[in-house]
Amino acid sequence: MVSDGEVPPAPPEYRLGCLLHQVQAKLARASAEALAPYGVDGHDLAVLVVLATGETSSQIEAAARLGVDRTTMVSLIDGLEDHGLVERRRSSRDRRRNVVRLTPSGRDCLDRADRARRAAEHRFLAPLDEQTAATLMRALRALVVEEPAAKRSGGHPP
């Protein structure tokens, strides 16, 4: 018997980490299914998105924006290049640097695959009403995006 002062541990299905893991796995499966017809996965799509912004032109810059190591980025770019979605050239200003750009096929793939991803996310969130889905997205962004220290502490240093 549990005394009034003791709280039994929550079962795994009620723990935040377990729930987040299950939600992420379910969304990953839905996204993979949606992206498969375009020959890309979520990692490939992220690279295409970063390259499409025009703010990133080198493999190293793209790797930094995505938070992946250089070796992983080389592998991702190799695969996208093999499929004709990106082209890689040496920089005319710095021969040590590879400049990577979307090809017309890459731009088309990005547009179609991103529409499919958005539709998959919409279907995934369908059990929630629109307001709840928007609140969930705001809450997740708040947990991921680091707030300035002054805002977190009410204007005082931690």
Rank of each mutant, 00 (worst) to 15 (best):
S3M: 11
D4I: 14
G5C: 03
G5N: 14
P9Q: 10
G17K: 08
G17C: 00
C18F: 15
L19Y: 08
L19I: 11
L19S: 09
L20M: 13
V23L: 12
K26C: 06
A28I: 01
A28F: 13
A28G: 15
A28Y: 11
R29M: 04
A34Q: 09
L35D: 02
V40I: 14
V40P: 12
A46E: 09
V47Q: 11
L48V: 04
L51W: 06
T56S: 07
S58G: 10
Q59P: 02
E61C: 00
E61G: 08
A62F: 04
A63F: 03
G67E: 02
G67N: 04
V68E: 01
V68K: 05
V68C: 07
T71G: 04
M73P: 12
S75P: 01
L76N: 05
L76P: 03
G79F: 02
G79E: 10
H83I: 04
L85M: 14
E87K: 11
R89D: 14
S91L: 12
D94V: 07
D94E: 11
R96V: 05
V99W: 09
L102Y: 09
T103N: 11
S105K: 14
R107E: 15
D108L: 13
L110D: 03
R112N: 03
A113Q: 00
D114N: 12
R115C: 01
R117N: 08
A119L: 10
E121S: 00
H122V: 05
H122N: 03
F124H: 10
F124Q: 14
F124A: 06
F124E: 11
L125W: 10
L125N: 10
L125Y: 13
D129R: 02
D129T: 00
A133K: 07
A133Q: 09
M137N: 09
R141W: 12
A142C: 08
L143D: 10
E147K: 11
A150K: 07
K151R: 15
R152D: 03
S153P: 01
S153H: 13
G154V: 05
P157A: 07
P158W: 11
